[in-house]
C-alpha cells in the first residue's frame, strides 16, 4: 500500500511586480496558478517546463520557504502552512532543498566538513563528540573523501560542490528532497555521476524527491512520475512510462520533439513552436498555450481546458485530447 507523502491542492503563488517606474498598476505575476499533485513515498516526481514556468516557485512554496497565495500543501497529512514553530523546525529537518548552483548555498569561509556537521549538531542528530565520524560517513555515501572535510568550497569543482550540498542535505536524514535543477550546470560526465548518486540514495535510504529539471532525458532516466508545466499550470501529468510512451498534450509533444537526439542516423519530424513563452503577468485567455499551439482553435481562446484524468492515471488539459 502506498503512502502519501506530499499533497498539493490548487496551489497558487502570485508575486506582486511593481517593476519599472512607469507601471502604475501593481500587476501580479501568476507564477503558479492552481496546481495539484501528490507524491507517494518512494516517488521521484519530475517537474518539467521551460524557464519561467513556475517550477522553482513550486519547490520553494511546498517547503514553505515563502508564503502561498492560495491552496493547500500537506506533508504527511499535516498542513504545512499552519504548522507551529516547533513543528516547522521538524519539517526543516525532514525536507531539504538542493539548488542548481551549489556555490551560492555554501559559505566560502566554512570548511565543508563543518558546513555538513553544523546542522547535524544544531538539530540534535549528532553530538560534538561523534559529529566528525558522522560527517565522514555521509561524505563517503556521497562520493567524497575524508580529506575533503578540511577544505573550503572554492577548492572544489562544480560536481564536487554539488556532492557537498547533497551530503549536507543527506546529513539530516531527510525523507523528502526538493532538487531544483541539480545537474543543469554540470558537464555530461559529472552529471552522470551525480544522477547515479541520486538513484543509489533513493534505493538505500528510501528517499522521495521532487526533481525539477528542464531536461527530459534526465527526467525520464530518474523519475517515476512526471508533470509538464507551462506558464504556471501543469498541462500533463502521468507515470514516466505513460508520459513518454503516450504523450498527449500538444506542448509535451513539442517539447519531446525539440530534444536533440545524439544519433545522426535518426531523422524525425520536429514540431517547431512559434514565438516565445508569453508573460505570466498577462497570460493568454482560455488555454495559455494557445498562442504557440499548432492545433489551436477559437474554442481554445474562449474556454480554459479542464485538467482531467484520461485513464491510466494520465492527466492532461487540452480540449482536443
Amino acid at each position: 500500500m502506498s503512502e502519501t507523502l506530499l499533497e498539493v491542492k490548487n496551489l497558487k503563488k502570485y508575486y506582486s511586480s511593481s517593476k519599472g517606474i512607469f507601471s502604475k498598476k501593481n500587476e501580479s505575476v501568476k507564477a503558479v496558478d492552481g496546481v495539484s499533485f501528490t507524491i507517494e513515498k518512494g516517488d521521484v516526481f519530475g517537474l518539467v517546463g521551460e524557464s519561467g514556468s513556475g517550477k522553482s516557485t513550486i519547490g520553494k512554496t511546498i517547503l514553505r520557504l515563502h508564503d502561498k497565495t492560495e491552496g493547500e500543501v500537506r506533508f504527511k497529512g499535516e498542513d504545512v502552512f499552519s504548522l507551529i514553530k516547533k513543528d516547522l523546525r521538524r519539517l526543516r529537518v525532514q525536507t531539504q532543498l538542493v539548488f542548481q548552483d551549489p556555490f551560492s548555498s555554501l559559505n566560502p569561509r566554512i570548511r565543508v566538513g563543518d558546513a555538513i556537521g553544523e546542522a547535524m549538531v544544531q538539530h540534535g542528530l549528532a553530538t560534538n563528540k561523534d559529529v566528525r565520524e558522522k560527517v565522514l560517513q555521509v561524505m563517503e555515501t556521497c562520493g567524497l573523501s575524508p580529506y575533503h572535510a578540511d577544505r573550503y568550497p572554492h577548492e572544489f569543482s562544480g560536481g564536487q560542490r554539488q556532492r557537498i550540498v547533497i551530503a549536507r542535505a543527506m546529513a539530516l536524514n531527510p525523507e523528502f528532497l526538493v532538487m531544483d535543477e541539480p545537474v543543469a550546470a554540470l558537464d555530461v560526465s559529472i552529471q552522470a555521476q551525480i544522477i547515479n548518486l541520486f538513484s543509489e540514495l533513493r534505493k538505500k535510504n528510501g528517499l522521495s524527491y521532487l526533481f525539477i529539471s528542464h531536461d527530459l532525458s534526465v527526467v525520464e532516466h530518474l523519475c517515476t512520475k512526471i508533470a509538464i508545466m507551462y506558464l504556471g499550470n501543469i498541462v500533463e501529468m502521468a507515470t514516466k512510462e505513460e508520459l513518454f510512451d503516450n504523450p498527449l498534450h500538444p506542448y509535451t509533444k513539442a517539447l519531446l520533439s525539440a530534444v536533440p537526439i545524439p544519433d545522426p542516423r535518426v531523422k524525425r519530424e520536429r514540431i517547431i513552436l512559434k514565438g516565445d513563452i508569453p508573460s505570466p503577468v498577462n497570460p493568454p485567455s482560455g488555454c495559455k498555450f494557445r498562442t504557440r499551439c499548432p492545433i489551436a482553435t477559437e474554442l481554445c481562446a474562449e474556454k480554459v481546458p479542464e485538467f482531467r484524468d484520461v485513464g491510466n492515471e494520465h492527466f492532461t488539459a487540452c480540449h482536443y485530447v
Binding site: I195, S199, L216, S217, V218, H221, L256
Partner: peptide, 21 residues
C-alpha cells in the same frame, strides 16, 4: 561521453560514468 548521456526512450538502471574530473 556518448554513453554517459541519458537518452530518451532508453531507461537504463544506471548511467555509464567517467570517473574523476
Amino acid at each position: 561521453l556518448l554513453k554517459a548521456k541519458p537518452l530518451i526512450g532508453e531507461r537504463k538502471e544506471s548511467l555509464f560514468t567517467i570517473a574523476g574530473q
